[in-house]
Structure formats: structure tokens, C-alpha cells
């Protein structure tokens, strides 16, 4: 008797679970058949009246039915949950192509960026980064660098003089002297900074620009050593092979003095306005430090010698980014500066 009731319940329950259209209908079916007061619980209660062997048999049957129904129920329930989640997620559709709100980082000036890079390169080579004043004494800017007052080399550096006899440094070279005074020998320094020349401004001339001075003083420093540092420097800056040449150049504070030229990166040596059609750009005046300069810095030239160089940072920046107008660098024009 109970057997047929049980199989009847099972059949009804299966069709109720199958028919449930949503989670609520499913739950209703669960209560009806599997609930504490549901159809199967009713069988369980009626079972008590059966003789023991029959009770055991029906009990096993009941459990099998219950297990079957629970499995079906859980499966369907999980399916509904999955549907619900999928629907929610779908409703949460986002236009991922919308622009992100909020601030972006600003840019550092290209001159700052190149200075920092070179500071890092030279620091890794054991150089200290030294600053010097922008307003200088005539002695530090000229005399100590072996340029006495009547030396024609002073013509090459159109100087801004100040009312009190001081001047705006025309190069970063006075920092050589200040560094020798401060640190003595041996010495390895670079000094990036702003320099001034009394020149009319146009696309390739500025009265305010940036240089990086470098100096190494030790025992028996050679031209070969200097070349090593210059080459390392340029490879770091341009991150590519560069063609360079060293030729004689006259600077009173070095002897011998050189001009290090780099093959123009804008035109590849073909000739363009930046290299004045020559294919080469003067980049690095350098040389072995003149004994008079060592003496002015309080260093004995019989014991020590060294090299020095002056890198035109402004020109370097222009070459690296292909900037065709030097005035942009001091213009404060964000249309330009935000490109870096």
C-alpha cells in the first residue's frame, strides 16, 4: 500500500520540481514534499505502524526517494541561482570605453628629466652631483679658469654683468673651482645648472640655457679615460649607437682641449638646420684640466691631473626630442611641456 503511495508521491514531486517556474515555486514544492510537514514526513510517521521487517524495507525505500528528490531539488535550486546571478551581472553592464575621471600626473620639464638621468648615470660611476651659484664672482667664472681679464676668450662668452661687479655665470665651469676648493683631490663631480649669455634670442639662441659640467681629478688621468666617460655618457643619454669624433678645441681651462662632436641625430649626418648643414653637432667641449686651474682650486698639478667637460643640456634635449625652437624650453607653454 505504502509502496504505491510512495511511488505516487515521488512521481508527483518530480513533476512539481520539474514544473517549478521560479525559485519560489520550487521552494513551495520542497515544503510540500520534503518539508517537516510534507508528504514524505507523513509517510515516515505512518511507517511506525508497520511490522518491523516491513518498516525496514519501507524505510530504505523512503530514504531512496528522499535522496532522489533532494538531489533534484538542489540541482534545480542551483540552476535558479545561477540564472539569477547571470541576470544580475547582465544588468550591471558597464561601458568600459568611458573615460576615467580624475587628475593625471603632470610632466617634469624635459631639462629636469635629462638632468636626473645624467645624475643617475654619473652617480653610478662614483661622481658627486654638486651645485654652484648662478650669480658668480668674476674670479670664479674667469680668472680661476685661466681666463685673465684681457684674454680674448672672454669675447666668446657674452657676459651679463651685474651692477655690483658680480656676473651671471656664463658656464657651469666655475663649479669646478668651487668643488676643488671644497673637496680637494681626488675628485669626481658633475654640476648641472642654468647659465647665461648676453645674446639675442631666436630659434637657436637663448640667453638662458643649461649645461652639465663634469670633472675628474686623480693620478695619471688620460685622454683615453676621458673618452671612456664621454662615450658612456652619450650611450646612456641616447640609448643607441652614436657616432662621435674628437678634434682640437680651444678652452683656456683645459690643455689639451677638445670638441667632441656627435653625428646629428635629426638628419643622420645629411645636414639640417639644427647641425647648420654640417652633419655634426658640437656637443661636448672637454679636455685635460689646465695646471693653472688645478692651482686655482688649491690642487698640486705635479701630484694630480684630470679631465673636465661641459655638456650642453639644452642642445641635448633638443636633439633627443627633435625640438626645433629653443625658445619653447623657457616659454612655460603647457601645450609644449605636457608632451614630455
Amino acid at each position: 500500500m505504502l509502496d504505491s503511495t510512495l511511488s505516487d508521491i515521488e512521481a508527483r514531486a518530480v513533476s512539481a520540481i520539474d514544473a517549478a517556474a521560479d525559485a519560489a515555486a520550487l521552494e513551495e514544492a520542497r515544503v510540500e514534499f520534503l518539508g517537516r510537514k510534507g508528504a514524505l514526513a507523513q509517510i515516515g510517521r505512518e511507517m511506525g505502524k508497520l511490522p518491523p521487517e516491513e518498516r525496514a524495507r519501507i524505510g530504505r525505500l523512503l530514504n531512496a526517494v528522499k535522496q532522489n528528490l533532494e538531489e533534484r531539488f538542489e540541482k534545480k535550486k542551483a540552476w535558479f541561482e545561477e540564472q539569477a546571478l547571470a541576470a544580475r551581472l547582465d544588468a550591471e553592464w558597464l561601458d568600459v570605453t568611458l573615460p576615467a575621471p580624475g587628475l593625471r600626473p603632470g610632466s617634469l620639464h624635459p631639462l629636469t628629466q635629462i638632468q636626473k638621468e645624467l645624475e643617475d648615470v654619473f652617480t653610478s660611476l662614483g661622481f658627486a652631483v654638486v651645485d654652484g651659484p648662478e650669480v658668480e664672482t668674476e674670479w670664479h667664472n674667469f680668472d680661476a679658469l685661466n681666463i685673465p681679464p684681457t684674454h680674448p676668450a672672454r669675447d666668446a662668452q657674452d657676459t651679463f654683468w651685474l651692477e655690483n661687479g658680480l656676473l651671471l655665470r656664463t658656464h657651469t665651469s666655475p663649479v669646478q673651482v668651487r668643488a676643488m676648493e671644497r673637496f680637494g683631490a681626488p675628485l669626481r663631480i658633475i654640476a648641472p645648472g642654468r647659465v647665461f649669455r648676453n645674446e639675442e634670442v631666436d630659434a637657436s639662441h637663448e640667453h638662458t640655457f643649461y649645461q652639465l659640467e663634469g670633472m675628474m681629478i686623480d693620478r695619471d688621468v688620460s685622454i683615453g679615460h676621458m673618452l671612456y666617460f664621454m662615450k658612456t655618457l652619450l650611450e646612456a643619454v641616447f640609448r643607441r649607437d652614436v657616432t662621435v669624433r674628437l678634434r682640437p678645441g680651444f678652452f683656456p681651462f683645459v690643455e689639451p682641449g677638445f670638441e667632441l662632436d656627435i653625428q646629428c641625430l635629426l638628419c643622420g649626418g645629411e645636414g639640417c638646420p639644427v647641425c647648420k648643414q654640417s652633419g655634426w653637432v658640437e656637443l661636448l667641449p672637454c679636455g685635460l684640466v689646465h695646471p693653472n686651474v688645478l692651482r686655482a682650486g688649491g690642487i698640486d698639478p705635479e701630484q694630480w691631473n684630470g679631465f673636465a667637460f661641459g655638456l650642453g643640456l639644452t642642445r641635448l634635449v633638443m636633439m633627443r626630442y627633435g625640438i626645433d625652437d629653443i625658445r619653447l624650453l623657457q616659454s612655460g607653454d603647457l601645450r609644449f611641456l605636457q608632451q614630455f
Binding site: 587628475l103 593625471r104 600626473p105 603632470g106 610632466s107 617634469l108 620639464h109 631639462l111 629636469t112 648662478e134 651671471l168 642654468r194 647665461f196 640667453h207 638662458t208 624650453l329 623657457q330 612655460g332 603647457l334 611641456l337 605636457q338
Partner: peptide
């Protein structure tokens, strides 16, 4: 968000 400028002295 600030961009660096460089002005004359």
C-alpha cells in the same frame, strides 16, 4: 597633476 615650467631669472 602639476606640470613643470622653467622661467627666466
Amino acid at each position: 597633476g602639476f606640470t613643470e615650467v622653467s622661467n627666466y631669472s
